[in-house]
Each structure stands twice: as C-alpha cells, then as structure tokens.
C-alpha cells in the first residue's frame, strides 16, 4: 500500500515563476492493483506519479510505502527503493540511442553488479516474452513505436520491481498498439505486479483492466472511482 498524506509540490519556490502542481493531496494506492491517474494536461498527474515513484520529493506532506515513511529519506535510500520497487515507462520511452535493445534493457541493473551472463539472460528472457527476441542487438533508434514501448517495459521490469509506473504510455501509439499495451498490463497484473498509469486516453480510462481511477484537476483530486473491488 502507498499512502500519501497532505502532499504538496511546488516548483521554483520563492521565485516569480513559482508554480504549485499539487495541493495538499491525500490518498491511498493499492500496490498490487492497476491504478490510473487521469485528468487534463497540467492537472498534476505526472507530478503525482513522480512523487509516488520516488523520482521527486514533496514540498510538504508525507509518503508511506508499506507503512514506512519514504518522503524524507536521503537520495541514496530513495534510489534504492526506486530501483527495487518501481519500474518506469516514460512517455517518450527515453531509451538511450546508440545502445542496442538488450543493453538498454540491462541498464537499470548495472549498479547492482550482477554477473553479466545472468543479467543478459534475464534481459533476453524479458525481450523474448514481449516478442522482441529477434531484435536483441538492434539499435533502439531502429525500433517502431510499439517495439520501443515494449523495450521500455522490459527495461522497467529488469530489476523485477513490484510496481510498474507508466507515464502517458499510449500518447504516441495508435489504438491497436494501445490495446497491445493493455494486454501487457493485464499480463503483469496476472503475475501479481501493481501498475500505476497516467493517461487521458479514453481507451485506457475505459479499459476493464483499470482497477482504480484517480481523477485530477488543478493539482487536486476530483474523485476516486473503484472500477473493481
């Protein structure tokens, strides 16, 4: 369970361009469910996602992960939690150009210092699982949009995290690829992993895969609707 208490996030605090992205938000997210943060652009859903995923610290308020307060932890511990608990799929996938597909997938595990054959085998297994087994050595800039997304998912899963975090994962994909993504999410859910997604794509919001939807507007939660309990 992830619990947020009175979370606020202010960018450029004290400067003329100060911007408050989240206003005193409190909510709970089931770590083993598929949760959607939705809302219009600028509603604060991506900021909320980065706070939940330990990519940023809140300006005020507390975040608890499995009952442990993580919002005040030093960067080193936060990175450790991020690495072991969360896997990230970014909107533009953020694969590193010039590297091969398998190198990109292995990248999050480099600081762990696992034996190379073991790590490579794990990365290859994930890529085979998502239908990219024939493109292990291809450079990522040669991949199609759907392939790049699947590669990004494999990279997010390399450290076997409990929760996959995806920011606008279907923003650059057509409907067929969106459905393919939802199928992958469903598969991950079946493996007992939690997924947190931000999206304002109706195909995602209306999908039966979503178990909880948190609607955002102007940095505040509008409502929470349980899709399945």
């Amino acid at each position: 369970m992830i619990r947020l208490e009175q979370i606020s996030k202010v960018f450029n605090q004290g400067r003329p361009n100060e911007f408050r992205a989240i206003h005193g938000l409190s909510l709970g997210i089931a770590a083993d469910r598929v949760t959607l943060f939705t809302g219009p652009s600028g509603s604060g859903k991506t900021t909320l996602l980065s706070l939940v995923g330990c990519l940023a610290r809140p300006t005020s308020g507390r975040i608890y992960l499995k009952g442990r307060m993580i919002s005040a932890l030093p960067e080193r511990f936060l990175t450790d939690i991020r690495r072991s608990t969360f896997g990230f799929v970014f909107q533009r996938f953020n694969l590193i150009k010039g590297l091969s597909l398998i190198e990109n997938v292995m990248l999050p595990a480099y600081p762990l210092g696992l034996p190379f054959p073991e790590l490579r085998e794990r990365a290859a297994g994930l890529l085979h699982g998502l239908g990219l087994g024939s493109k292990l050595e291809n450079r990522v800039e040669w991949l199609s949009g759907g392939e790049a997304q699947r590669a990004a998912i494999c990279r997010a899963l390399i450290n076997d995290p409990a929760i996959l975090i995806a920011d606008e994962p279907t923003a650059n994909l057509d409907s067929a690829l969106t459905r393919e993504f939802l199928a992958i999410v469903e598969g991950l859910r079946g493996q007992g992993k939690g997924v947190i997604i931000t999206s304002h794509d109706p195909l995602i919001a209306e999908s039966a895969v979503m178990e909880a939807v948190i609607r955002m507007r102007d940095g505040r939660r509008v409502e929470r609707m349980a899709m399945e309990d």
């Binding site: 990175t79 953020n94 999050p108």
Partner: peptide, 16 residues
C-alpha cells in the same frame, strides 16, 4: 543532461 536524467530515473544513484 537527458541521459543522466534517464539513468537516475531508472535507478542509478548520483554516485553511479
């Protein structure tokens, strides 16, 4: 700069 951001986001520490 973006590459450093990506590496940190996917679990690299500042020290790494």
């Amino acid at each position: 700069r973006q590459e450093i951001g990506i590496l940190k986001a996917i679990g690299w520490e500042t020290g790494d």
